[in-house]
Amino acid sequence: MRDSRIMSQSMDRKANGKAEEDALIARILAGERDLFHELIRPYERIVYRMVYSMLGHEAEAEDAAQTAVIHAYTHLASYRGESRFSTWLVTIALNEGRVRLRKRSALREDSIDALGDDTPGDFTPALLTDWREIPSAALERKELREQLIKAMSELPAIYRDVFVMRDVEGLDIEETARGLSITPASVKVRLHRARRMMQKNLAPVLKGYASKSKGRIGGWS
C-alpha cells in the first residue's frame, strides 16, 4: 500500500464523483457552458503543477495551464468517459507541456537519456548513509522546493511523465498507463528508474537538509 501521507495529496481527495462529473459534462455539452468553470475548478492546480514540473518556469507554466484548460473545454465532446475526467485532463496538460518543450532548442529528449523499458541499464542509486529523512517542514524553504522541481524537470521525459503522474498527482498505475498509452508494466519500470534518478540527482544537494538519525524511518511494513 502506498503511504497514506502520499495518497492524501492525490487528486482523489478533491475530485468529484465520476457519475456526478459525467452528468455535469452532459449539461455543458447540452448548452450550459458556464458549468465548465465548476467542472475544472477542482483540477486547475493539478494542471498547473503538471506543466510546471515539465517547464520549470512560472509564467510559461501559467500560460500552458490556461491553454490546456481551454483545449479541454473546446474538445470536451471528445471526452468519452472511459477514463476519469481528471486523467483525460492531465493527459491534455502533458501534451501541452510536451509541445512547449519541443519548441525549446535545448530539449533533452528520450533518445538521449532514456532506455527501452526492457533494457536493464545502470540505475545505481546514490549510496549514502547520512540522508534518512528531510522533514516536510523543510518545504517552507524555497530553495528546497526549487531543487525538487528542478530535479523533476531534468528527468528524461518518459520518466518524468510517469513520476509526476504517479508520485506528484497520485494517479494509480492503470490511470497512468491509460493516460500515457503504455502498459502498466512500463509504468512500474519507468517509475522505478525515475525514483532512483531523483534520489541520485538530489543526494548531493539535499543532504544538508536531512536529519541524521541512526535508525530506519518507521512505518515500513
Partner: peptide, 14 residues
C-alpha cells in the same frame, strides 16, 4: 538509507 532517502523524495514531492 538509500530506501529511506528515495521514499523521502516520494513523500516530499507529493
Amino acid at each position: 538509507a538509500t530506501i529511506d532517502s528515495t521514499r523521502n523524495i516520494v513523500v516530499l514531492v507529493a
